[in-house]
Structures are given as C-alpha cells and as structure tokens.
Amino acid sequence: MSGAELAVENVTLRFGGLRALDAVSFAVHPGSLHALIGPNGAGKSSCFNVISGLYRAGEGRVRFGEHDITGIRPNRLAKRGIGRAFQNAALSPQSTVLDNVMLGRYSLTRGGFLECGLQLPWVRKQERRHTERAAEICEFLGLGAALHTPAGALPYGAVKRVDIARALAVEPALLLLDEPAAGMNAAETAELADTIREIREELDISILLVEHDMGLVMGIADRVTVLDFGRVIADGPPAEVQSDPEVVRAYLGTDSSDGTEAG
C-alpha cells in the first residue's frame, strides 16, 4: 500500500500581488504521519488546495510516487490513491452512514444508470463485496452500530469519523486530512487523535494532516512542517520543531490564543 511519496517541490502560489505560498517544499514519506501547521493565514489551506487540485500552482510541482499530480483534476485524486477528508465533513445528511462511506468506493466500482437500475448479477455481487468492505471500515472507526443511521443524526465527533471512513473507503495510499479538529472540544479532539493514531498503526498508509491545533499535532505526528506567511519556517520531528525559536515567535507573536482554544 505505502511506497509512494508525496513531494511538494518549490510550490509558489500568487493571488494578485499576494504570495500565498512562496517556494514551499516538503515531502511526506511513505507510511508517515506528516503534519502541516501554521498560524491563521499561513497558507496551510492554500497548500492543501494545491495538493488536492483545487488551486493551480504558479510555479513548482506536486509529485505523488512517480506521477506528477500538479493541477490534477480533483476527481482524479481517488484513482491515484489519495483519499481526502473535509474540514466541514461534507456528508449527505439524509443518507445513512453506510451509504456515505460507500460513496468512497465510487472510483473502485463501475456501473451507470442502466446497470444499477437493472440490478445485473455482477452489479449485485460488486455491491455486496464493497458494502462488506465499507462496513468493515466503519467498524474499524467505531461506527459499526451506526451503519444505518442517517449521517445527519450523529454527534459531531462521529460525523467526522464518517468523513474519515469515507476517505479510507477509497483505499488510499495517502490520506489528506483538512483541519479535522476544527470545531471540536478537548474530549473530541483527544478521541480524534486516537482515531488517527489507530489508522496510521493499522493501515500502513501515509497521512498528511493540516491542522491548527498544536496539541493534537505534537502528540501524534512523525514529522511537522510549519508554514508562516507562505514560507516553510521549520521542518522536522515535533520535538525539534516545538523548540524552534522561529516557530515559537510565529505562534506566540501573531495569535497567542492559538491551539488552546476549544471549539
């Protein structure tokens, strides 16, 4: 599963005169949990959007394994083995948990209106096989009891896990998590940290975690890249980065309430 490295090479992104990203480079090693952090407006989300194909970098490249995925269309990511979870979860609230997670199997399955409508034998078989796998993933994330519950009826922490389950249903080699702890209280964040750690230990995939919450990141990441004003100001293991004077200045100097705030 692992083996492909995500490499962000010299990516520069301009919005008019503003340099949202300035020659940003870092690499997510196969099987590692890499965190991308920074104060508000540091360019985390811009960087995330460049990787996931929403923004096109002015300069530089994004590579995944041997494939150049710079400016890839977002709907090609899943095929390349990249799963993505959303900051706002972005689920279908009326659909069941299982139905939401099954959406992740879209690029692994086939069949259009007629095939689905006619319930051809191979479609039914495919559906059964993938439903089992989706249920397994839900079980793994502690959603086993809620398979047939509409996603909109779940508490926030569980909604986030459904979103992560859907991203995992893509069978990704790399999981992109966009500020998963946003809007969570301390207990929920701790639970989320456990979930992420478990995914990393059990599934042997790389995770790129874009996060605001320092506490969450420092506890679980293997490696941390810190952005400030669109530039990489530190890159290394959490302990090293934490004591970096420039990182301390960026965090304490611009927004002191950062990371301790409970959603």
Partner: peptide, 27 residues
C-alpha cells in the same frame, strides 16, 4: 429504485449535497 439504491444514486446525492466532496471521491 435500482439506480437510487446503487452506485449511480450515491453519485447523484453526492452531487446534490456537496460537489467538492463528490469530486474528491472520484465523481
């Protein structure tokens, strides 16, 4: 009924509820 319960129905609902999530799942 078959379409709504299957892969294509999920794609429809995904497009209805959130287009970027739909795209991220390969739609």
């Amino acid at each position: 009924r078959g379409a709504v319960g299957g892969r294509i129905g999920r794609a429809w609902r995904a497009v209805r509820d959130n287009e970027s999530a739909a795209a991220a799942m390969g739609i």
